[in-house]
Each structure stands twice: as structure tokens, then as C-alpha cells.
């Protein structure tokens, strides 16, 4: 059970790191290239710890690379939110705000897990995602209350990611932290940021879900094809 949980959290971090990596050499300003790479590196570090642990718990001899490179998309357990294409900077920041605020509440509680490894990963990660949340907050405020164009784009970015919010808080069998318990503090934080930015939480009636069960968007297959092709072209090789 717990290996599925570690795997799901690890997949979230891995897939989002992969998406953020796409911004490198493409950010709006050099300073932001550096910032986004820092966030991607934090997430990649979390993914490596969590996948390694998931492999140990599973006991079938799979390490972080076996899990990252040799599973097909039906076996990935990340939420759909993290696999969506990056879109423009506003979509990326909308996702960052939503996801970092969720990860913060999650890791903050996971520190108290009876599982020492998960508690240790969470203890380190909570500081990282606190910064990610702050970074996204700063940008949502500036884009929401910047120019007409940035306000319009930021609102559109929220529209894009909002149907994928509910999935974060769905029940997960074997979870150390009940996802449903994260909703209220998440709502309080994100709601306050949007209010200050002059933005409304989108009134979407849509709820996309399935990632935790391996039912993904079409986007994930392409992401994995790119990520995995070299590793899979040389089975058994060391890099």
C-alpha cells in the first residue's frame, strides 16, 4: 500500500519537474530561468527519493531509473494536473500556485508520518515547496494585477488548470495524509492570493480525474516517449 503512495507522490514530482525543465532557456527573463530551474531541481530531488523508496518497499529490485524509465503511462500514478502542457507563463504559474500550495499542506503533515523515510523526505521537501508556493504567489499577484493583458492571461491560466484541482483531494488508499483534509487550508491560502490579485476562482463545473488509477491525458504519453526513449534504446546500459 505504502509503496503505491510513495510512487504516486514521486510521480507527481517527477512529471512536474519534467514540465518545468521545458522552460529552461525559454523563461521571460534570465533571473526567472534560474528560479524555475531551482524549482525543477527541488522536485526532481523529491522524485528521486520517493521513487527510490517506492522501489525498496516494493522489493522487486527496481531503482529510481527502473521506475522512471521502464513504466508505461498506464502505470504512472501522478495527478493529471502535473502532466498538462506548460502553456504560457500564466498557465505555468497557475499550476505552480495550485500544486505548490497543495504540496505544502501535504508535506507539512507528512512530516509527522510514522514512516521514518516519508517523514524525512517531507521534512526536507516542505521547506522547498514553501519557497515554490511563495514564488508562484509573487507571480500570480503581479500577473493578476499587472497589465490588462496579464490579467486576462492569468484568468485564462486558472481556467485551464481548475478542472484538475479536485483530483488532488480525492481519497487515496494507503495515504499517510488524508488528501481531503488538505482542501480547507489549501482553499484558504489560494483564495487569499487570488483575492489580493483581483482574480476569481473559476466557476468550473468540470472535474477531471483518473491519474492515480493510471488513466491519464493524451499528453503524458508524449512526455514519457521523450523522457524514456534514450534510456530504453540501450537496455541494461549504465549512464
Amino acid at each position: 500500500m505504502r509503496d503505491r503512495y510513495a510512487l504516486a507522490l514521486g510521480d507527481d514530482a517527477l512529471i512536474l519537474a519534467q514540465r518545468l525543465g521545458e522552460w529552461v532557456a525559454r523563461a521571460p527573463e534570465l533571473e526567472e530561468d534560474v528560479a524555475l530551474a531551482n524549482i525543477a531541481l527541488d522536485l526532481l530531488g523529491q522524485a528521486r527519493s520517493l521513487l527510490t523508496y517506492a522501489g525498496e518497499l516494493e522489493g522487486a529490485g527496481r531503482d529510481e531509473d527502473a521506475l522512471a524509465y521502464w513504466r508505461d503511462d498506464r502505470d504512472f500514478r501522478n495527478v493529471l494536473l502535473v502532466e498538462l502542457p506548460g502553456g504560457d507563463f500564466a498557465v505555468t504559474m497557475a499550476r505552480q500556485l495550485v500544486f505548490a500550495a497543495y504540496q505544502y499542506e501535504l508535506y507539512d503533515r507528512l512530516r509527522a508520518s510514522t514512516d521514518d523515510t516519508l517523514a524525512a523526505v517531507a521534512g526536507k521537501a516542505v521547506k522547498e515547496v514553501h519557497y515554490h508556493r511563495d514564488h508562484a504567489t509573487q507571480w500570480v499577484l503581479r500577473l493578476g494585477d499587472g497589465t490588462d493583458e496579464s490579467h486576462r492571461r492569468m484568468a485564462a491560466g486558472l481556467e485551464t488548470v481548475w478542472p484538475y484541482v479536485d483530483e488532488l483531494f480525492e481519497p487515496f488508499d494507503g495515504a499517510d495524509v488524508d488528501p481531503a483534509a488538505l482542501r480547507e487550508p489549501w482553499q484558504a491560502y489560494v483564495g487569499a492570493v487570488l483575492a489580493e490579485a483581483g482574480l476569481e476562482p473559476p466557476a468550473t463545473g468540470q472535474h477531471r480525474t483518473g491519474g492515480r488509477r493510471g488513466l491519464h491525458t493524451e499528453h503524458l504519453g508524449y512526455l514519457l516517449a521523450e523522457m524514456q526513449h534514450l534510456h530504453r534504446s540501450h537496455p541494461g546500459a549504465t549512464w
Partner: peptide, 23 residues
């Protein structure tokens, strides 16, 4: 090659290196 790095360790190294270049 960041998106296609053949191991997660190499991905992290490469990302950090390209980030340094921005710096």
C-alpha cells in the same frame, strides 16, 4: 537533452549545469 537525459541523476546534473549558464 534535459528532457531526454538517460538517468534521473544525469537529468539533475544537466539541469543544474544549464541553470549555471543562465547565472
Amino acid at each position: 537533452w534535459i528532457s531526454r537525459a538517460p538517468s534521473l541523476r544525469r537529468k539533475a546534473i544537466l539541469l543544474a549545469k544549464v541553470q549555471d549558464e543562465a547565472g
